[in-house]
Simulated assay, not measured.
Amino acid sequence: MRPRIFVTQPIPQPALELLREHGHVEVFPWTNRDVSLDELESASVRSHYLFCMHETPIRASLFGPGSQLVGIGYSGPDPELHDLEAIASSGVRMLTAVRPSPPDDDPDGFSWDGYGLNPRATGQLMVALLLNCAYRVNESDMFCRANGFFQEMTMQFMGHGTTGKTVGLYGFGKVAKQAARLLSAMDMEVLYTKRTRLTPADEAKWGVQWVADADDLITRSDYVCLLVNYTADNAELFGEREFKLMKPTAYFINVARGRLVDEQALIAALRDGTIAGAGLEAFRTEPPVVHDAYVPAEFRKMDNVVLTPHNGGATYASRGAQTLRTAEAIVADIKANWKN
């Protein structure tokens, strides 16, 4: 008998094809919501392996009576989403996707060997959101679809563009590095702030300028891009105070985590013209805050907000590499432990 594998959402074909070579594969079919805990519990009774994405909850109920699980493929433990004590006592093998180490000659992940693909894709999406705001692409698209007719060279959708403008990178990790080289090429002044300043050589390498005071970065920037990791200590890092520091013509871009932002303060700043607009990839209403992620209705009603569904790594290369590594971990366990 071949093992039965339940995949918690649609994933790229290379990973599915590999899994199908070694087992019977069932894929959760919906793309407008995450798999529920009840559906996961049902899958654990009829499946031997779960293929989980990073937001999939792993709770004690998955290991209850009737469960046939022997292995779960996932990207790694998350105390907010995973019941680590129940996992440890279940006897179910947790199969972590192996992430390749960066090449010695390419520590920043610019090679095409699979390393650095997700930060690269997320950094490029950040730039896409910025450009959308700079040239008001989303508003122009909606206008063209709704009206059909237009006035050539209209002033209705004039934008600030990027040439000669200042972008502030609040945080400077892997994603910011990937974005910085593109922003510099777009004739922008690129500022950054972080706890530890880069060396002069690295600042020259990335084309960025250090700003020690985060408030100064916010005040000077035409585009403020939030790029720090979320921790309990920096929850709601951006709130009413920070938005009031921004220029009224400035845009706020968030490709980090929704919980870094006081969302009601952002909504108010967008409504009353404190800032010009926003490009949002992450929202407070995501796991682990809620199970089914959703975009607040207030943002969906605003023409000056560009929205993407927390999907920064959504290129065939990036998502394909991520899911293939998890599939390889499951297949390795099948080869080592599955008894026909």
Rank of each mutant, 00 (worst) to 15 (best):
I5G: 01
F6W: 04
V7R: 00
I11M: 06
E17P: 00
E17W: 00
R20V: 10
H24R: 00
H24D: 14
E26A: 03
T31K: 12
N32G: 11
R33S: 02
R33N: 05
D38H: 07
S42K: 07
S44H: 07
L50Y: 00
C52P: 01
I58S: 07
L62H: 00
G71M: 04
Y74C: 06
Y74I: 05
S75H: 13
L81K: 04
I87M: 00
S90A: 01
R93H: 14
L95H: 11
A97P: 02
D106Q: 05
G109E: 08
P119R: 05
R120H: 12
G123P: 03
L125E: 11
M126P: 07
L130M: 11
R136S: 03
E139P: 09
M142K: 13
M142W: 15
C144T: 12
R145K: 10
A146C: 09
N147V: 15
G148T: 13
F150L: 12
Q151A: 14
E152G: 05
M153Q: 11
T154I: 12
F157I: 11
F157W: 14
G159T: 11
G164M: 03
K165Q: 10
G171M: 12
F172L: 03
K174T: 13
A176G: 09
A176W: 03
R181W: 02
R181P: 02
S184D: 09
E189T: 15
V190N: 03
L191H: 02
L191T: 06
T193K: 03
T199G: 10
A201C: 09
W206H: 05
Q209M: 11
A212D: 15
D222M: 00
Y223I: 15
V224M: 05
V224Q: 06
N234R: 04
A235M: 11
L237G: 08
F238V: 14
G239C: 01
E240N: 10
M246Y: 07
M246H: 03
K247N: 13
A250S: 07
Y251C: 14
I253N: 04
A256T: 10
R257M: 15
E263P: 01
A265F: 15
G277W: 06
G277L: 05
G279P: 10
A282M: 12
F283K: 03
P287N: 08
P288W: 04
H291Q: 04
D292E: 05
V295Y: 05
E298C: 02
E298T: 01
D303E: 11
V306K: 06
N311I: 11
A314R: 01
A317N: 10
E328W: 04
A332M: 08
D333V: 06
I334C: 00
K335P: 14
A336D: 11
N337P: 15
W338Q: 07
